[in-house]
């Protein structure tokens, strides 16, 4: 830019005005669009979102499946576990996105504007939900190809997707809070790792009663197990018991805690980089 264009810039038509407050859910809409563009431009994440569900489904069916259940019925057992595993991986990128936003100056710019700057997080969460529901659809699609035969009615399918969506929201909120707590995007990715192991210590891949006794207690009382049992009951017609209540209760409680923790971190980190 030459000094000449700069001088011309000065004479621009803009009169000094005030920045109006944004109305309704405009900020949320804008930030969801932003996160959506981020997702589709992040080729690695997109590849993972498609490839991981496919690979895991094939691996658990053809490599572990026959060893665990020689009768060939393992695919019917394992689908809910794969769905949660993929959702966990998919949602973990939220921690990195949130942490990246916090470590650049962009969040401070939003915070000095008359809008709900927390809507930035809403954008990341909403896009994670959509991305992981697509990953769930891929898991189910591949599962059907390799012999998954669910007994669910349309209403049960809907309820199962509802349960999966609630789980995705829960783990995404948790990852968003981890992203806020982490000092850097790299740390965010590391901190979130432990959450990805939770599905293994549940009824996702093997029945809980095959585990050592002390581990059984952990597996039965951690939030993943009731979620798995609820999805399995809806898809395969196994008895649901009180799993659905436990699943919804756990998810609601974790979302409440993660949201409160996240809101606190978001305020505290203001203006500090």
């Amino acid at each position: 830019m030459t000094t000449l264009t700069a001088a011309r810039a000065a004479a621009g038509p803009d009169a000094v005005a005030h920045r109006p407050r944004v109305r309704g859910f405009t900020a949320e809409r804008v930030f969801i669009t932003r996160s959506f563009i981020h997702t589709i431009r992040d080729v690695d994440t997109m590849m993972m979102a498609v490839l991981l569900p496919t690979m895991l489904m094939l691996m658990f069916t053809y490599i572990f499946g026959n060893a665990i259940d020689p009768s060939g019925g393992y695919v019917d057992y394992v689908v809910p576990g794969i769905i949660l595993l993929c959702a966990g991986f998919g949602a973990s990128t939220t921690a990195i996105s949130v942490s990246r936003d916090m470590s650049t100056g962009i969040i401070d710019r939003f915070r000095t504007m008359p809008l709900r700057s927390g809507a930035v997080l809403t954008g990341h969460v909403a896009v994670s939900l959509v991305r992981n529901l697509i990953a769930t659809a891929i898991v189910i699609g591949v599962a059907l190809l390799v012999g998954f035969r669910p007994s669910a009615t349309p209403l049960e399918w809907l309820a199962a997707f509802g349960m999966v969506a609630l789980y995705i929201l829960t783990i995404t909120y948790l990852f968003a809070a981890i992203g806020l707590a982490a000092p850097s995007p790299e740390a965010a990715s590391g901190y979130g790792f432990i959450l990805l192991f939770l599905p293994y210590v549940s009824s996702a891949f093997v029945p809980v009663d095959t585990m050592p006794e002390w581990l059984q207690w952990v597996a039965e009382n951690q939030p993943i197990t009731p979620v798995i049992e609820t999805i399995r009951a809806l898809l395969m017609g196994t008895p649901v018991g009180d799993s659905a209540w436990w699943a919804v209760g756990w998810c609601a409680a974790i979302i409440a805690i993660a949201a409160a923790w996240g809101a606190w971190l978001f305020r505290r980190k203001s203006g500090r980089r």
């Binding site: 005030h18 920045r19 109006p20 407050r21 650049t104 100056g105 962009i106 401070d108 710019r109 000095t112 504007m113 008359p114 980089r273």
Partner: peptide, 12 residues
């Protein structure tokens, strides 16, 4: 906030 704009140190 309606009256101000900030260009911070790190490119926002």
């Amino acid at each position: 906030q309606q009256c101000i704009a900030l260009t911070g140190q790190a490119a926002a």
